[in-house]
Design a protein around this nucleic acid. Structure first.
Lengths: 239, 239
DNA sequence: ATGTCATATGTTGTATGATGAGTTATGATA
DNA sequence: TATCATAACTCATCATACAACATATGACAT
């Protein structure tokens, strides 16, 4: 017979999420200090006027976010390093278009930096894997495939050449968000070879600059490459 | 009278986490295709031999990880872009030194991009908040404080001026990882004013370039600023 | 007085059944 | 055939009970 009028909350989305958000806020606001114990489930049940199920799901989500740590028999405690919250690209209050544009912009600058760093630090092995990726992509194109995977491999090879593992991780993280490949799917088949050719030209220019150790050119070519890709993608999606 | 012998699982840590891990694995392995519906709670209860509570908590954790999306009345579905796993800067197989250096490098390049973008797009309001932050930092310095918070506010104001919310989020994410402030704590008190002065000079140069819309200079000044900060930090920590 | 141990109490973890709230399939009816 | 009420299914929430673990309490022996 649960009364639904216990809601100074308002109740559109899931209750558990609303509770979780409120708890997050209170933690980040310093309402609960790092290391401190959260109110027990029973207390929270009373404070929020919801069932234990909801409280538990809310706390559970804080747990996977790394904000709190629960100890059976003792309680739930705020983590010492609140900072370690993960980074996500899921701004709910962002249009699909803005999401894509902003994510792509983030990636672009990131990759420009990668190209510059790669030009500074590339080893012979790096150059080899870059060229191998390009060769495979070319082969894929000749075989009539899109070669998206090989494309990404090339970019990953560049990230590898930076010697910064976080750069690699971040590119892997960003990669799936921005796939100009869906533009390729919608593309007029007659235009595809042209597109793939220009892609190859751009990639080669980047690789060349990195190989030569020309940081400025490497960055510029990468910027040009991604900007054009963004353009094509934008046109294909009517953005 | 729940029987504990239903465990082909093994049962050290929380059941819900073990179940969540198994589900994650099956999803990433492609056992459940993107877009496909997960088995219903009832079925999962039978498959794992645990209670609905556990299943719900496990699925809940997959939800906050962005791996699945639950629709009331329909079911739980695997997200189209499984890739949406959050980005973390966990230094598992990285020395503390490499961790700091690489994270700082990541931040540096992002902030250079921020400065350049800010110079392109800054509004009057942006400039005002930048200058306000600088003023507050100066006041803090004069009051004998370190002014780290105000320092970060200035950088955040720049990120704001990019108009890209992901840039802001990312800076917030990276911020706590790299705190040249700990260098300030270990610094000889006699050197502190000098350091703070040069800090202010650099900040002003950045702000000026952004205000003037000089993208190149803005980026260069930011790069110089952070590189010097990294240097100071490295010396203080014997890296 | 002190150390040891059983007990009580509090807290999170798990199980279970019932109900609310959406979604979809079914089938009756016009 | 089209429309619409109904049923069936699913996740969301509530409520209660018990298990597992941790800590505090107090009795008891030394």
């Amino acid at each position: 017979m649960q009364k639904s009028e216990s809601l100074a909350l308002g109740m559109r989305p899931k209750l558990s999420e609303r509770v979780a958000d409120q708890l997050r806020e209170r933690i980040q606001k310093g309402d609960f200090a790092p290391g401190a114990q959260l109110p027990t489930e029973g207390v929270l049940v009373e404070q929020f006027g919801v069932s234990r199920t909801v409280i538990r799901e809310a706390v559970s989500s804080l747990r996977v976010d790394g904000l709190v740590k629960a100890h059976q028999g003792r309680g739930v405690f705020v983590c010492e390093d609140i900072s370690q919250q993960p980074f996500r690209l899921c701004s709910k209050d962002l249009s699909e278009k803005d999401h894509l544009v902003q994510a792509m912009e983030l990636r672009m600058h990131m990759e420009v930096a990668n190209a510059e760093l790669a030009a500074l630090r590339r080893t012979d092995a790096n150059i080899q894997s870059m060229e191998a990726a390009l060769q495979k992509q070319h082969a894929a194109h000749l075989a009539g495939e899109l070669g998206q995977k090989e494309d990404f491999s090339f970019h990953l090879a560049i990230a590898n050449a930076t010697g910064n593992s976080y750069m690699i991780d971040f590119l892997r993280f960003l990669g799936p968000f921005i796939i100009p490949a869906n533009a390729m799917h919608q593309m007029d088949p007659k235009e595809l070879p042209d597109y793939q050719n220009s892609l190859r030209t751009e990639h080669l220019a980047i690789a060349e600059a990195i190989k030569a150790g020309d940081t400025e050119k490497a960055g510029a070519e990468m910027r040009n490459h991604l900007r054009r890709g963004l353009q094509v993608n934008a046109n294909a999606n009517d953005l």
